[in-house]
């Protein structure tokens, strides 16, 4: 038995390396790489100016980086950690989402009120879609049918048909919508309104509001509760919402929409990412310049890791 365990352990060690969290640092123009087992920084990589949104290709060969002030989406080869080329991105790319076809990248161009669709293989712009003022949050439904963009000053979710690249509907939400996240099944959409201080849960089929979630933290003024990043566990149990300058992450029961707890993290918490099969949650804390690590089972913050200046986005490579 012991031999078997040892052998299994050896095998795991051989086939898988440790997971790595990639954190974009908006004001130091770098990525911080964190070893998820050791919870230690293992590398810092220089990238374009003002890196914000980051995502992996589905095969984890590439990392796409919105280098906002370089007006480019950079493509990093994860084997070498070199930026191999830029994609045409439109002006000031901030956030983006990758279609399940692993090919079409939907980019929110904050300064020019459009969503740019880029073919990552041909490296060409295949469509630009007019949306509201200051497009920000982007998500693609798991079935690849819907693309949703949020516009921060128009205060809407814009529903784009992924097959035609036409804008087909708009949903009004509270002030300054920042982030949208589909549930695993794609049946629901969670959208945060930063200045409104709310999270809307919307039914994808009818595009009707199911529930408006509000937050209340003792000792924190309601104006400081500013929801941004959202992550949902695949088992449908929890939703986590980063509350910005309230310095807490809200834990929500994803079926009853009841707020279960508020976890104290670093200052101005913005984006979130799961690691280790969703047993850990990483948060980027802009003002304190660090990353908090939450144990998802115990709902406790277990570690704080120093990152660069103004960590913005985070993704984890398994």
């Amino acid at each position: 038995m012991r031999l078997l365990v040892l052998a299994a352990g050896l095998l795991t060690a051989l086939v898988s390396q440790a997971e790595v969290a990639y954190v974009s640092n908006e004001k130091s123009d770098t990525l911080t790489l964190i070893d998820v087992d050791k919870l230690e920084v293992i590398d810092t990589l220089e990238v374009g100016m003002r890196p914000r949104g980051i995502i992996f290709s589905q095969d984890y060969k590439y990392l796409y980086i919105c280098a906002s002030e370089s007006d480019a989406v950079q493509v990093m080869d994860l084997a070498t950690h070199k930026v191999i080329h830029n994609l045409p991105s439109g002006e000031d790319p901030e956030q983006f989402a990758l279609h399940p076809n692993n090919r079409h990248l939907y980019i929110a161009n904050e300064d020019s009120a459009v969503v740019t669709v880029v073919d990552t293989v041909d490296r060409t712009v295949i469509a630009q879609i007019d949306v509201g003022i200051e497009p920000e949050g982007m998500a693609v439904s798991p079935d690849g049918k819907w693309v949703i963009n949020t516009s921060e000053t128009t205060n809407m979710l814009h529903w784009i048909d992924a097959s035609t690249h036409e804008l087909v509907d708009n949903t009004l939400v509270d002030q300054r919508p920042r982030h949208v996240e589909f549930s695993k099944s794609g049946e629901k959409v969670w959208a945060s309104a930063e200045i409104g201080g709310t999270v809307d849960v919307i039914d994808t089929a009818s595009r009707e509001l199911i529930k408006k979630i509000t937050f209340k933290i003792p000792g924190v003024h309601r104006d400081k509760i500013q929801p941004v990043g959202i992550k949902l566990t695949d088992d449908g149990k929890y939703a986590f919402v980063a509350l910005g300058p309230a310095n807490h992450v809200a834990v929500i029961d994803a079926s009853t929409y009841e707020v279960l707890d508020y976890l104290l993290v670093g200052r101005r918490v913005w984006q979130l990412a799961f690691a280790k099969e969703q047993s850990l949650l990483f948060t980027t804390n802009g003002v304190s310049g660090d990353v908090s690590v939450i144990d998802v089972e115990d709902l406790k913050v277990i570690k704080t890791i120093k990152a660069g200046r103004y960590p913005w986005g985070v993704v984890v490579k398994p």
Binding site: N155, R176, E194, I195, G196, D223
Partner: peptide, 10 residues
């Protein structure tokens, strides 16, 4: 009524 107006709060 609440307005987001680039001053960090409604």
């Amino acid at each position: 009524f609440e307005l987001a107006a680039f001053k960090g709060r409604k």
